[in-house]
Design a protein around this nucleic acid. Sequence first.
DNA 1: CTGAAAGCGCTAACAT
DNA 2: ATGTTAGCGCTTTCAG
Lengths: 351, 351
Amino acid sequence: MSKAKIGDVAREAGVSLGTVSNALNHPEKVRPETLEHINAAIDRLGYVPNQGARQLAGGTSRVFGLVLPCLDHAFSLQIANGVQAEARRHGYDLLIASAGNDDILENRYMRYFLGAQMAGVLVLPMADNAWKPPVQTPSIPIVYLGIHGKTPGMYVAADNEAQGRAILEHVHSRGAHRVAVVGNAEFASLSLRVRGICDAARELGVEIELIGRGDWDSASDGFVLGKWFAERYGGMRPDCLIGLTDVLAAGLADGVLAAGKKIPEDVLVAGCDGNPLAWGGSVPLTTIASPGEEIGRRGVQVLVDLMEGKRLDVLHQEMVEPKLLARMSTATTRIARKQAEPVALNLGEYL
Amino acid sequence: MSKAKIGDVAREAGVSLGTVSNALNHPEKVRPETLEHINAAIDRLGYVPNQGARQLAGGTSRVFGLVLPCLDHAFSLQIANGVQAEARRHGYDLLIASAGNDDILENRYMRYFLGAQMAGVLVLPMADNAWKPPVQTPSIPIVYLGIHGKTPGMYVAADNEAQGRAILEHVHSRGAHRVAVVGNAEFASLSLRVRGICDAARELGVEIELIGRGDWDSASDGFVLGKWFAERYGGMRPDCLIGLTDVLAAGLADGVLAAGKKIPEDVLVAGCDGNPLAWGGSVPLTTIASPGEEIGRRGVQVLVDLMEGKRLDVLHQEMVEPKLLARMSTATTRIARKQAEPVALNLGEYL
DNA sequence: CTGAAAGCGCTAACAT
DNA sequence: ATGTTAGCGCTTTCAG
């Protein structure tokens, strides 16, 4: 039972309550000797200051809160890492909540953080299409990550169009002329990705086939489609398959192999969202790393700027550029044939 | 400025302060009609209850805290997911802190959670070798994850020896007879893994070569060693390389390929810690998934049992069994030659 | 259901 | 440099 309160510590150390408080919050205002006594007493009693009381009494909290949709996706994690690193750099702590893909919970956690008087809150909202500002005129700054807002607020997100453009330009440079794009482009970010792909295709004279309806988003869906594409005859067969997500792309790759075709010799395959969880498949997958860390870092910078009194537009937007991770699934065939030049781990942003 | 307090809500709703408090904490004690008025007022004012005050005044907090060493490793994430899921199942919320591989910070967050009067705290301590109980007789239950304790406390961890044994038995079943094990076995968990490997090797008559000194833990270290092993002559060359971590193993694989040998035809390669971040390499890597989710879930169960009044031994230990993820890097050569039977994604515990 | 009031443990003024 | 004291916003009593 560590019921020890600050008063107990004071008594144990033979000083007054206020002095202990000072020792905790403004150590420089306490004589070193006294301070030692106090610390000894704290250890002896196993005293842990009550954060609630602390906050209530008006202490300023140097803790940021981060709300993530889930912990399953690399993008969330990169963001978490970026936020974490940048927060520490500025002397802030970070508490993370995962909403388990539930928007009720997402809101709950946001309110919790706001109610806990955090110094600031960052959110990676889940369904960026069906999205509305959850808290009106909050007393605490909120930064939205991964989406571009229309309503007043602060937003830091990837340039999804650039992401699509980059992957298409890459496969084009590897010789692709007929590209099939697979995935459910229902989400705003994915549809921007598709737009980037299509724009680039038009400019480069690449032919595009878009398979975007339905619930195709699992690896097994990809498998079916990959096989289907690979089994087409000559001119009808795309020379490149792009999955809007890496999981889908991994499935596509397996489907192509199951059809007896070779990657990348017969068909190039690429993913689009840099998800390491999809990298355990039969072929090392080329993909685009959403620059999550960068987004996280920039989000914190916005918050810190704000704390330091800098004033921002009511609608503050920041864009971050994506990075290509070129791997075996789109290697030039010379490289692929003799695995001699291992594309290395190419973890890009990940390690 | 959402300075709205509970009193403001009361006035706005035309009821008394106490009633609002009841509406928030014991809705069943308030007439539905009144409750609606109050909720309307809350929305209108953008009221968010102050968690600090709430906790201070004696509310009981249904929130668990989880302290992780970092967010870079799949093990941490699996644990987080397991904890998250199980906590929700029991109606608890979860706050996660990443210590950024810094034991000072780790301690800070633990104390923070304790001070924030969480319902319970779970910790995945970082350096399990140099580890001492950080808080004496805490008023709040703490469960240690991923380690087996010697001092009184609650512990849930993987069976590291079984992990080592499993990987060795697997490669043996794939025909390995001379196995080289690479990695810094300084950490307790890794050395247990090594022990499991060695025990199994002895039983099965497999020859073991252990390269365990130094700071070998990066992919490039693995590369050097992999090349070195692969370039040995005939009988001196191991027919299987095991990396104590997947990152190391991925490096080994690249090294082997760079030496002009084939995987798995000439040399089998396997990792040991199920880290998806290492799965982007040239060969899909066989590895062992530490059953992180299971560990996380069980940790929460311990906490919940405790909250429900169940009494546990002062030293409560639980062991969790690991799972094998067999992939291309140890496939039988028949499978490997014609990639026809894609080892599928085999994400095991991951998706 | 209301209204009033007693703290919860702490911080930050203010005296000393 | 140290001691004293007034709240912070909320939850619970307890009597209406």
